[in-house]
Write a protein that binds this DNA or RNA. Structure first.
Lengths: 127, 127
DNA sequence: CCTGTTCTACGAATATCTTCGTAAACAAAT
DNA sequence: ATTTGTTTACGAAGATATTCGTAGAACAGG
């Protein structure tokens, strides 16, 4: 089991963009980042270089303008962070986290139904 | 709207202990911290002093041995961290987070029922 | 070929977090 | 009164994260 590096706050923002867009150049990532955050171009570049060293990103450096891509999956990272959070902030109770999350975010009836279905499937599997 | 300070990793551990125990001395907190972590006493002390400056803790300094207490609620802090997480890692979808959390943590049928009830209540309220 | 633009690499400054040594205040025990 | 132990305060070292300036390579257009 390759234990995964824990991304920092800024690194998570970049990962988020790459998960959504797929492989991208530094410029592209930077442009999106800029919309929500003050940052110089070389700052974004440096961050992505470091992430590459850490193994969080892969890159294709064959052309002059390198292309970066997330090398950790969104799901695995989500799980990693959820586990930590449940552990330190929610007294180890996933249920508590779930209810807290539902309570403060307007979910549409359709979404609620999806969750119900999900619950049912889980119950079947257990037995 | 008092925007809340974001606790660091170590600060969260201390908050967790204070939420559980209620008002405590540095020594008491440190003793518990030690069980899961290598740390010197003055490290814990310093951390708690900083947290006090930041407004994360209140303290009663009337006696020689000060008594500390969390001054941010567990629920509010949970919400703050959840929001950030949903935003940066779950594409803004609380539903996605909920399903991910349920999928990887064995929940008992009783817990699943509680969640179902919760879902129903929410749906009523929306109207 | 020259010029201006875009890109990477590098290194260093800055900021933030974490850890701990030391000293002074205080209290309890001898 | 002196010693011993516990506590706070302070400051600084060490570790990690973030930001950016500068230089040089690569490229595009004239």
């Amino acid at each position: 089991m390759n234990k995964q590096v824990k991304p920092t706050e800024s690194e998570l923002e970049i990962l988020g963009i790459l998960w959504e867009r797929g492989a991208s150049t530094v410029r592209e990532v930077h442009e999106i980042l800029e919309q929500s955050k003050e940052a110089g171009y070389t700052t974004t570049l440096k961050l992505m270089q470091i992430m590459h060293e850490k193994g969080l990103l892969k890159r294709d450096a064959s052309a002059k303008t390198h292309i970066y891509e997330a090398s950790v999956s969104q799901e695995r990272t989500q799980q990693q962070l959820l586990n930590k959070m449940i552990d330190t902030v929610f007294n180890g109770s996933a249920t508590q986290l779930v209810m807290q999350a539902l309570g403060h975010h307007r979910s549409s009836p359709e979404e609620l139904d999806r969750i119900r279905q999900y619950l049912n499937e889980m119950e079947k599997k257990q037995s």
